[in-house]
Nucleic acid binder design. Structure first.
Lengths: 198, 198
DNA sequence: CTTGGAATTGAACATCTGTTCGGTTTATCA
DNA sequence: TGATAAACCGAACAGATGTTCAATTCCAAG
C-alpha cells in the first residue's frame, strides 16, 4: 500500500513548495504542521522528507528563492536614463512584482523571526541588497539636483514600505485595477522624493 | 506547595499580558506556548487561566486594547486648524505612538490571521476606524485645494504604510534619534500629498 | 483567632508536533 | 523480462500542546 499509481516526484516537489507557501502565508510558519502540508498535497507526512530535509529548510529555501528572483527580475528590467525615470520604473516594478506574489511577499516580510540565525543572515543580506536599489536611485537624484529629501536612507525605506503596503489592502475584485494602482503609486513615489512638478 | 508567599493577582495580571506581548512579538502567536508565558512570569501554566479564559482571548484582548488606546490617544491630540497642520500632527503622532510600542504594533499588524473570525471582525473594525483619520485629513486638504493626490483612499493607505514602516528599521542606538525621525517623516508626508512648497 | 476566598501548584487529559524508518509498490531502463 | 531505484505509506518515537482540576497555601476581613 505504498507508492500509489500516479505518483511523480517531478510533480510533487513543486506542489509541496506551493502548498507550503500558501499555508505559511495564511496561518504562519509555526501554525502549519508538516501533516497539513502533506494533506494539502495529498501524500503522507513522511513523504515530504523526499523534498526537504526539514521544515526550517523548506521555509528558508522559499524565502531565499523569492528574494533571488526579486533581485533577478529587477536586473532584467532595462536600464533607464536618469534617476527620475529609474524611480518610476522601480515603483512600477515593485508594485507589479509584489501584487503577483502576495504569499511569498508576506512570508518574506513576516517570517524572518522563524528563521534560524544562519538562514536569517542569508536572507537578510539579500533583503539589504534590494533595499540598496531605491537608495542608489534617490541618492543619484539628489546629487543631480532632481530630487529633494532630507535623508536618503530614510526616504528609501519609507518608499519601500509605502509600496509594499499595497499588498495589505489590494483585492482582486476591488475598486482599482492593477495598471491604475501602478500609476498611482509611481506618482506618489515622485511626490515623495520632491520631484518638482511642471 | 501552592500559593507561595509574595504571590499577588493585582501584579501578576499585567505581568502576564506584558510577557505575552513580548513573546508573541518575538516568536509569533502560534510559536509561543502557555508554558513559555508562565515561565516568563514565574508561575505554573495552570495559573494563567486566572487571567485569561484561553490563549486566543489573550491575543484578542491585547490587540483590541492596543487599537483602542491608539484611537483614544489620537482623539486626545488637540484639534488643528487646517488639513496641512492636521497632517503634520497625524504623521508625528503616528510615528511617536508606534516607536513607543513596537511589540504591540507588530502584533496588531501581523497576527490578524491568528484571530478567530469574531475577534477578527472586532479588531478590523477598529483598524478601519483609524484608517479613516488620514483619509479624512487628505480629503479635506484636496477639497480645499491645499493638497493634490489622484486617489484619496490609496494615498492614505500609502501614508499609513510608509509611517508604520519606521518600526522595521528603527533601532534605539541607531543613526537618527526620535525627534529627527519624526520630523523627516512629517516632511515626507507633506511631500506625498503634494503640498506646494514655498 | 477563625474563616472564606483568592492565588497557585502539579499532575493529568487527549491530541498534536517534527522526524525516522522498514517495508511496499510502481515506473524505468537494460 | 528482470533488476534497480525512486516514490510513498503507515506506524512509531519522544516530547510539546492547550486546558482542566483537586489540593494546597497564604492573605485579609470579621
Amino acid at each position: 500500500m505504498a507508492r500509489p499509481s500516479g505518483s511523480d516526484g517531478g510533480i510533487t516537489g513543486p506542489r509541496v513548495r506551493q502548498a507550503a507557501e500558501r499555508l505559511f502565508a495564511r496561518h504562519g510558519y509555526a501554525a502549519v504542521s508538516m501533516r497539513m502540508i502533506a494533506a494539502d498535497v495529498g501524500i503522507g507526512a513522511g513523504a515530504l522528507y523526499h523534498y526537504t530535509p526539514d521544515k526550517q529548510t523548506l521555509l528558508a529555501d522559499m524565502m531565499e528563492t523569492h528574494l533571488r528572483s526579486l533581485l533577478e527580475a529587477w536586473q532584467a528590467v532595462a536600464k533607464h536614463d536618469g534617476p527620475i525615470c529609474a524611480l518610476d520604473a522601480f515603483a512600477r516594478f515593485h508594485i507589479r512584482f509584489h501584487l503577483d506574489r502576495p504569499d511569498a511577499v508576506f512570508i518574506a516580510y513576516m517570517e524572518l523571526r522563524s528563521l534560524s540565525s544562519e538562514n536569517f543572515a542569508q536572507v537578510e543580506a539579500l533583503r539589504r541588497q534590494y533595499e540598496a536599489v531605491p537608495e542608489d536611485i534617490i541618492r543619484a537624484g539628489v546629487d543631480q539636483g532632481l530630487m529633494s529629501v532630507a535623508d536618503v536612507k530614510l526616504a528609501s525605506m519609507a518608499l519601500i514600505a509605502m509600496l509594499t503596503g499595497v499588498n495589505t489592502w489590494f483585492r482582486e475584485d476591488g475598486r482599482l485595477d492593477r495598471p491604475t494602482i501602478e500609476q498611482r503609486y509611481a506618482d506618489l513615489a515622485r511626490s515623495l522624493v520632491g520631484v518638482s512638478r511642471p
